[in-house]
C-alpha cells in the first residue's frame, strides 16, 4: 500500500478528475458554447410545450379577419375580448364550471382520503390473501373502462344516478374512480418508505391503529397527497369519456363537454360583417375559430391557475413521494 509510485499516480489522476459536481452543474464561464447549446435545447422544447397555450390565447384574442389573414400569426391587430363574452354566455360557463368543480374537487378530495387509507393498509399490513388483493389492484389499473362501460352504465342508471355527480363521487370515496388504482399505488410506495419508528412510538403511547394512522401517518403523507390531488383534479377536469356517459342532459354537462360542443356562434353582427369586408377578407367563410379558442381557454383557466399555485410543491412532492416506486 505504501508504494510511493502508486500514490503519485493516484495524485496525477485525481488532478484530471473534476469534482462529481460537474455531472450536475454546468461550469459557468469555461463552457460557454455548451451552455448556450443547452439553453437553446431547453428553450426550443419549452416553446413546443407552451405552443398549445400560446396558440389558443393568441387566436382567442383575434378578430375574425385576423384569423383569416395570413400575415397575422401571433399578435392580433387589436385585442378582441368579445370572443370571451360570446363563449362565456354560449357555454353557460358558470353552470359548467360548478359541475366541473364538484366533480373534480369532490372526487379528488375523496380519493385522497380513501386512497391514502387503502395505500397505508397495503403498505404496512400483511394478511391472508394479501397477494391476491394486490394483484387485483394492479388488475383494476389495467382494465380499460370500455370493457365494463355497459354494466356500469346500467348499474348507475338503475340507481337513478344518471345526470348526477354520484357516478364520479361515490367510486372515488371507495378508492376507485378515475385512476384510483394508480393513486393507491402512489400512496403504497410513499408509506413503504416511511420509517416505522413514529408508528411504534404512537402505539407504545397507547394509540390504536386508526388513531396512529389518522393523526400521524395521514398528515405526513402530504407530498403524496399533493401529487394525487393535482393529477386527480386535472384528469377529472379534462376527462370527456365518463361525463359523456353519465351526464346526458345539457344542464348537467361539465366544462369539458361544453367546450367540446362549442364551435362558436357563426352569426356575425352587421358591424362585424362590414368591417370584415373592408379589411379585404371577402369570400372567406366566416370562421369562428377565435370564439372556439376562447372557449378552450376559458375551460382550462381554472386548472391552469391551480397549477400555478401548486406547481412548486408539485414537482418537489413527486420527487419525495416516489411516484415511480423502487
Amino acid at each position: 500500500m505504501a508504494n510511493p509510485q502508486a500514490i503519485v499516480d493516484k495524485l496525477k489522476m485525481s488532478d484530471k478528475i473534476d469534482p462529481a459536481v460537474k455531472f450536475y452543474t454546468i461550469k459557468k464561464s469555461k463552457n460557454f458554447v455548451g451552455n448556450a447549446f443547452y439553453y437553446f435545447v431547453l428553450l426550443s422544447l419549452a416553446f413546443i410545450f407552451l405552443y398549445p397555450l400560446l396558440y389558443m390565447v393568441s387566436k382567442s384574442l383575434m378578430q375574425t379577419w385576423d384569423v383569416a389573414d395570413a400575415t397575422v400569426r401571433w399578435i392580433p391587430h387589436e385585442l378582441n375580448f368579445h370572443n370571451y363574452r360570446v363563449a362565456f354566455t354560449e357555454m353557460k360557463y358558470w353552470q359548467g364550471f360548478s359541475n366541473s368543480m364538484i366533480i373534480s374537487f369532490g372526487s379528488a378530495l375523496l380519493q385522497i382520503v380513501s386512497c391514502s387509507m387503502i395505500g397505508y393498509g397495503f403498505a404496512r399490513y400483511r394478511f391472508p390473501l394479501y397477494g391476491v388483493w394486490f394483484v387485483l389492484l394492479i388488475f383494476t389499473f389495467l382494465v380499460p373502462p370500455q370493457t365494463i362501460v355497459v354494466p356500469l352504465y346500467m348499474f348507475f342508471s338503475d340507481l337513478g344516478w344518471i345526470n348526477t355527480h354520484l357516478p364520479f363521487i361515490v367510486p372515488a370515496a371507495f378508492g376507485h374512480g378515475l385512476q384510483g388504482a394508480l393513486f393507491i399505488l402512489i400512496f403504497i410506495q410513499f408509506y413503504r418508505r416511511m420509517p416505522a419508528v413514529l408508528e411504534e412510538a404512537a402505539r407504545i403511547d397507547g394509540a390504536g391503529a386508526f388513531r396512529t394512522y389518522w393523526q400521524i401517518m395521514f398528515p405526513l403523507g402530504r407530498p403524496a397527497m399533493i401529487t394525487v390531488f393535482l393529477f386527480s383534479v386535472v384528469w377529472h377536469w379534462n376527462d370527456n369519456f365518463q361525463p359523456s356517459l353519465y351526464l346526458r342532459l345539457p344542464p348537467f354537462y361539465n366544462l369539458a363537454q361544453r367546450m367540446n360542443g362549442f364551435y362558436g356562434k357563426a352569426t356575425m353582427t352587421a358591424e362585424q360583417m362590414s368591417s370584415s369586408v373592408s379589411s379585404g377578407a371577402i369570400g372567406m367563410a366566416p370562421t369562428v375559430l377565435n370564439q372556439m379558442m376562447a372557449g378552450v381557454v376559458l375551460s382550462v383557466i381554472p386548472i391552469l391557475i391551480l397549477y400555478l399555485f401548486v406547481q412548486r410543491y408539485f414537482v418537489e412532492s413527486v420527487e419525495r413521494a416516489g411516484i415511480a416506486g423502487e
Partner: peptide, 26 residues
C-alpha cells in the same frame, strides 16, 4: 390481520361494486 383488512375493506367493497360485478355482468 383485522386491522389490515379494515384499512383495505373500503377498497374491497368498491372493487366488488365497481369492478368485479360489472366485469361479470359484461
Amino acid at each position: 390481520i383485522l386491522e389490515g383488512y379494515s384499512f383495505i375493506s373500503l377498497w374491497i367493497v368498491g372493487f366488488l361494486a365497481f369492478m368485479a360485478v360489472p366485469l361479470g355482468r359484461s
